[in-house]
């Protein structure tokens, strides 16, 4: 029997494998492409005056309305199948969100509460709070309920899961909004549909990201139970702020030459809002993750 001292070598380095789909990357890809396509469409139709055959245009408009969904399937849903630990229930989240939007959210806002009918002539602060307390709260609450009771808590494993499910819910909701718009405004051209798609994307993505932060922190952080309601309030407020601001920016000034609206401002505003929301919430996530990492490291040292 022989005995030899094992050589003092460092253990093999553990493989750095991230088993989940990278949500931020998908979201940024989808957002950039949506903004790009919608922006180009808007510019081409508004300033170059493209004139497509009616049938082609109808098809194009439908594609635009479904663009967020298509991009989500391409960049999020397919990507999910290529990772070791895919998120389950994303399809359900999206589908139920869309169903809830079609069955409850949109009819409740457009037919019952009708904020656009009685808020359009009010002052700016009234309009902001009016939309926040009606359209905003209904939309964000429905998405929250879908994520909370359909996806979580079983599906929430890491913070980014909250984003993935909230965005899936947002895509479902915004797709319904887009389709409602397209079917209710058959005369709207691709430029105006692009504008609406961007608008609905901005309020839904911004609202859902804010809400996702509240859910993630409630699930994975040690925070007050009031954070989640606060983020719902903030998401609704973003809706209330963006809806009147966007239309206010696009609205015309009445002059002797008439009143020509400026929808270009609307495009720029909606695009800006979605990027700012992504940037801001990403920052918050990074800060929290960093704090957690520091906390974990300091904990392991002790």
């Amino acid at each position: 029997m022989s005995f030899s001292t094992p050589p003092l070598i460092a253990p093999p380095k553990e493989d750095v494998i991230y088993p989940y789909r990278r949500v931020w990357r998908s979201l940024i890809q989808e957002t950039i492409i949506t903004v790009g396509i919608c922006g180009v469409t808007f510019v081409v139709y508004q300033f170059i005056g493209l004139n497509l055959p009616e049938l082609v245009e109808s098809g194009f408009v439908l594609i635009l309305a479904l663009l967020p969904l298509i991009l989500w399937i391409l960049f999020s849903r397919f990507a999910e199948t290529r990772v070791p630990v895919p998120r389950v229930g994303l399809n359900t989240t999206l589908g139920l969100s869309a169903l809830a939007a079609a069955a409850i959210g949109v009819p409740l806002v457009n037919t019952v509460i009708q904020p656009s009918d009685w808020l359009s002539l009010e002052s700016a602060p009234t309009r902001i709070f009016g939309y926040m307390l009606t359209a905003g709260i209904v939309q964000e609450f429905i998405k929250f309920m879908v994520v909370r009771y359909v996806s979580g808590p079983r599906a929430l494993r890491i913070r980014e899961d909250s984003i993935a499910y909230c965005i899936a819910s947002a895509v479902g909701y915004m797709t319904v909004l887009n389709l409602f718009y397209v079917f209710n405004h058959p005369a709207a051209g691709p430029d105006m549909v692009s504008l609406r798609v961007l608008h609905y994307m901005s309020i839904n993505v911004a609202g859902s990201l804010i809400m996702s932060y509240g859910i993630a922190q409630t699930w994975f952080g040690r925070v007050s139970p009031l954070l989640m309601p606060f983020t719902l309030l903030a998401a609704a407020f973003i809706n209330g702020l963006v809806i009147p601001l966007r239309s206010g920016l696009a609205n015309a000034s009445l002059l002797l030459s008439g009143a020509s609206a400026s929808p270009l401002f609307s495009v720029a505003f909606s695009s800006g809002i979605v990027f700012v929301a992504i940037g801001l919430v990403l920052f918050f996530y990074r800060v929290v993750e960093e704090q957690e990492r520091i906390s974990r490291e300091s904990g392991s040292l002790t």
């Binding site: 656009s116 309009r127 239309s247 015309a252 009445l254 008439g258 009143a259 020509s260 609206a261």
Partner: peptide, 19 residues
Amino acid sequence: RLAEEGGNPFELLIELTRD
């Protein structure tokens, strides 16, 4: 101004925006 616009009638195109 009316003459610049080509005379009567004075025409206006007013675009209204929805929220």
